[in-house]
Design a protein around this nucleic acid. Structure first.
Length: 284
DNA sequence: CCACCGTTGGAC
DNA sequence: GTCCAACGGTGG
């Protein structure tokens, strides 16, 4: 039962980005030229420690190849799709340059949306998502990881110890995408799971839902946190919206088209399996 | 190989 | 000072 009392929305939100938004549109990414080129170099190590600035605009890569997933620590170049990539040239000491990528709001929106539905994505799903968002698999993976941690943390702070048996409220898993085997009782640290080599979703039980059931149902209220600010008002419409987002965020045409392509087709269903949205495969 | 988790370091 | 993507280490 239960829908739960007042489940908080995972949102600490001490700081709201408010009027910042992502702004501008980076005129990045080159046309297919780069695309192709980069595609070729799939996994290339940024030996660029001293390499030229290689504008972030240069890398438009679609990380659909398992390479990234297969590769251990793929020093994947920042890839594209981000608002800005900061490349700090580090000395040739062998120190890695830390690159901080700021995702587009649109990207965050999609990521958050997905996260709300699924805490864990399969390798393939991640790849698909990364494709659409024009991020690397690694980035998507990292984002999800960070998000999980964030939520977990938030939850820890806001949830007493009752979580001992939070069997979670249920979202609406109408589709079979969400692991319904959630029988595990979350024990404060039971999230563990392992080996799901792209297929064994086994334990990700709570993967589909956990703390912010209701809030999530609400749509993308803000479990994911900030990214789902009120700025983006379109709650749920059709693909057009998604498209818009991406466009607004400053995605390149190719990307938009790509996204549109994906979103407009069944892919969207694939990507947003349980989206309560009325997605009609016709709007394009 | 993966996820988890603490840390780092850049952006705000 | 905070936020957060990305790193690095650890354990399975």
């Amino acid at each position: 039962m239960s829908a739960d009392p007042a489940l908080p929305q995972c949102t600490p939100g001490p700081k709201a980005p408010s009027s910042r938004d992502s702004s501008p549109m980076p005129e990045i990414y080159g046309p297919e030229e780069n695309y192709a080129s980069l595609q070729m170099s799939s996994v290339q190590t940024p030996h660029a420690e001293t390499v030229s600035p290689l504008p972030a605009s240069m890398d438009l890569r679609i990380q659909d190849s398992p390479d990234s997933s297969t590769s251990p620590r793929v020093k994947v170049p920042p890839t594209s799709g981000e608002e800005r990539t900061v490349r700090k040239e580090d000395t040739a000491q062998g120190k890695k340059q830390k690159i901080r990528t700021v995702f587009f709001q649109a990207q965050l929106y999609v990521l958050n949306g997905r996260f709300q539905r699924q805490k864990y994505l399969s390798l393939q799903q991640m790849q698909e998502l990364s494709n659409i968002l024009n991020l690397s698999y690694k980035q998507v993976k990292t984002w999800f990881q960070n998000q999980r941690m964030k939520c977990k943390r938030w939850q820890k702070n806001h949830w007493p110890k009752e979580s001992k048996s939070v069997t979670q409220g249920y979202l609406r898993n109408t589709s079979g995408n969400l692991p319904l085997w959630s029988n595990q009782t979350w024990n404060s640290q039971s999230w563990s799971n392992h080996s799901w080599n792209g297929q064994s979703w086994g334990n990700h039980s709570w993967a589909s839902q956990t703390w912010c059931p209701q809030a999530w149902n609400n749509q993308l209220q803000n479990c994911g946190e900030e990214s789902l600010q009120p700025q983006i008002q379109f709650q749920q419409n059709s693909i057009s919206d998604l498209e818009s987002i991406l466009a607004t965020s400053g995605e390149s045409h190719s990307v938009i088209q790509q996204s549109a392509k994906y979103f407009s087709t069944q892919q969207i269903m694939d990507l947003f399996p349980n989206y309560s949205v009325n997605i009609e495969p016709e709007d394009v």
